[in-house]
Design a protein around this nucleic acid. Structure first.
Lengths: 154, 154
DNA sequence: TCATCCTGTCGACGTCGTCCATTCCATGGA
DNA sequence: TCCATGGAATGGACGACGTCGACAGGATGA
């Protein structure tokens, strides 16, 4: 995991369809060497997969909200129950004012309400607190430490 | 934007490196037709770009937190000031107990503390409230309405 | 000094993306 | 009903690209 690997990841985050020849040229390597680097990054699990970035608004998911969920006892199936709701994009266990935090993307406030109803139907849920997003400044990929403009922290 | 387009998006979200021939076969189309569909989805802005999914833990970003930020006056440059902090992955204006909500990924709690310090240095910030994530159930892409397991809501 | 391993370069083959002409189907007008 | 029009899919041909193998260079350790 050196600087070249970090540059490769950064470049692939921008455009994963880039030809290996161009990718190699950008980091001072041949196409074959770039290919080998990427193969190993996949092997190590650093690169999970290549995917497409979808515009939520164009896809009809213009309403974004974060929902903090209170509950008493979490049974094993809570994660699966949340995953069964397609509008829920992320689900985390948190330390703080609530027990869970989920990210919800809905097509309307009406649908958001419906998602909340489905969340309430999950065993153990006693309450929710919803934070509606008015405007999104940016949403970007994971930043890999060591890539440009880092203050040198470890 | 029909069912075929939705299936294509769903398939590409799983694996964008899939050959057009395979993609077409999966939705009952030829390679050329699949290519044309994808081209138009890009043209319409529905597919923003193809990128790689990075494992945050493997990348040395094992600590995830959401930070709610309080402030009085937001000048135009607030979004840029937040974007300048590479550890901040998302930044939103919210309606609720605070003014802004940002998603932070750090390598350690020590670095998280440093990120909070940098947030405080931004003009107008008067306070923060941090929610640390203990465990992540899942993080997935935008779900496109109409794709499988939808209860038929609009 | 030599052996070994890792990593990169180069080249060749096969696959895949890309483009174009053609055909098919749905739609609307006279 | 017939014809005109536009959108979309098919199939094929060309060229670019991914993929793999053999070989070379450099670093490490005995």
């Amino acid at each position: 995991m050196d600087d070249v690997d970090r540059m490769i990841i950064s470049l692939l985050q921008e455009d994963a369809a880039r030809p290996y020849a161009a990718l190699g040229a950008a980091v001072g390597l041949s196409a074959g060497a770039a290919h080998e680097r990427v193969r190993k990054l996949r092997e190590r699990g650093l690169i999970r997969r290549t995917t497409v970035d979808i515009d939520p608004v164009a896809a009809g998911r213009g309403v974004l909200a974060y929902v903090m969920i209170d509950g008493k006892t979490w049974m094993g199936g809570t994660g699966e129950a949340l995953a069964a709701v397609p509008e829920i994009e992320e689900a985390h266990v948190i330390a703080g004012p609530a027990s869970l935090l989920v990210k919800v993307r809905a097509s309307s406030t009406r649908e958001l309400q419906d998602v909340l109803r489905r969340v309430f139907e999950i065993d153990g849920v006693t309450g929710t607190q919803t934070v509606v997003v008015l405007e999104t400044f940016f949403e970007r990929g994971v930043h890999v430490p060591g890539t440009s403009s880092d203050s040198g922290h470890k």
